[in-house]
Design a protein around this nucleic acid. Sequence first.
DNA 1: TTGATTATGACACGCCTGTGTCAAAAAAAC
DNA 2: GTTTTTTTGACACAGGCGTGTCATAATCAA
Lengths: 209, 209
Amino acid sequence: MCDNGLVPKVVDHEGRRAELAVALWRVALRDGFDAVTVRSVAEESAWSAGALRHYFPDKTTMVLFAIDFVVESVRRRIGDANAAAGALTPQLVQDHLEQFLPLDDERRLESEAWFALVTLAHRDPAAAERRTQVDDLIRGAVESAVAALEELGALGAGRTRAAETAGLHALLDGMVLQLLARPPRLSPEQARDMLVRHLAELRASGPGV
Amino acid sequence: MCDNGLVPKVVDHEGRRAELAVALWRVALRDGFDAVTVRSVAEESAWSAGALRHYFPDKTTMVLFAIDFVVESVRRRIGDANAAAGALTPQLVQDHLEQFLPLDDERRLESEAWFALVTLAHRDPAAAERRTQVDDLIRGAVESAVAALEELGALGAGRTRAAETAGLHALLDGMVLQLLARPPRLSPEQARDMLVRHLAELRASGPGV
DNA sequence: TTGATTATGACACGCCTGTGTCAAAAAAAC
DNA sequence: GTTTTTTTGACACAGGCGTGTCATAATCAA
């Protein structure tokens, strides 16, 4: 393309995409996910609608990128926390699991993104596949939390890692849903309490032992 | 209007509305809730789009009616089961709670309706109010289940009705979400097991006792 | 049969959507 | 300044949406 040595204007495509993703989530959180259109994101980001097409071939790609963008930030945060973690303690496990609950603005955005993905997955096969990946990510984090409890000797007799992971995962999903509801059906304090109680529960022997 | 004693043609409005609601859910289950439009419901019900306006002033009213239609059928089914119930047993409590899980086609429709309501409530205040009512209905049913366990002496020491109700409600919501996922993250058998285990858990003493 | 009254549904209007097109602006090497 | 390439964004198009309008069909008492 540049056989003659001329160098064209270059822009940071990835950076621009990230900027657009942020604008998209601003719209989604303010006006609801259905208000996310090519035009609304364009206006929010102060660019023209046509310009968006130079970074995303279509709307679906844009939305999925925005979702991946958030998922990646969650992954990074969790990774950082793991790296910075000192001695394994029950409190650490609790903190680890709380990363998936919308207990502050940052995590509320992430939970909203998760919910948007769940909704989207209901009609779009591509989004459904993405949802499975995200669910696997959460499932893995929950499983490692349960494994940590086991290592700490905080997993009661008669409890299997698989069963407790599945149960805890379902509980977390439900809690997110109720924390996200407007008006909220669960306060952050109640949610934390619920998690504390559940982890304490896992300390005792399982049912039928 | 009928001063001269003439009686115009009469139709069963409520029956027609019910028929349209059924058609709406057929569309929603087959093509996704976003495929529900005035035109698609009209085609599904083999009526003209304009005809629908004679039974619902607008689309929102139609959708909310369809949701209420399902909620009412749930309420009726639960009420019938309660009336027909014999002696209070743990199995009865289990059955009662399973009514809220999408374990067969009928209850899958109901759960889909619930999920559609949750989604809708995210953007529409009227739907949000409806969602609160439905959540209260579920919450009440869960609470009465916990109360039944207490009566049966199947609620361990150190467990409060409020806390266990909230926890069980969140767990159920999460289970529904995972049962509804495609591909399902939870099989009906796993879901039933999870519920059995949770109820058995409630039999034991609570954490910290 | 007739006439009053409602039920019905075809049609069109305006809006918003995603998405192509294409001329103009911008940037960097010469 | 000139030239070449990429970036940019205004514009238009087709399609689907919710929702009004209004002539026609259907119904039943007289």
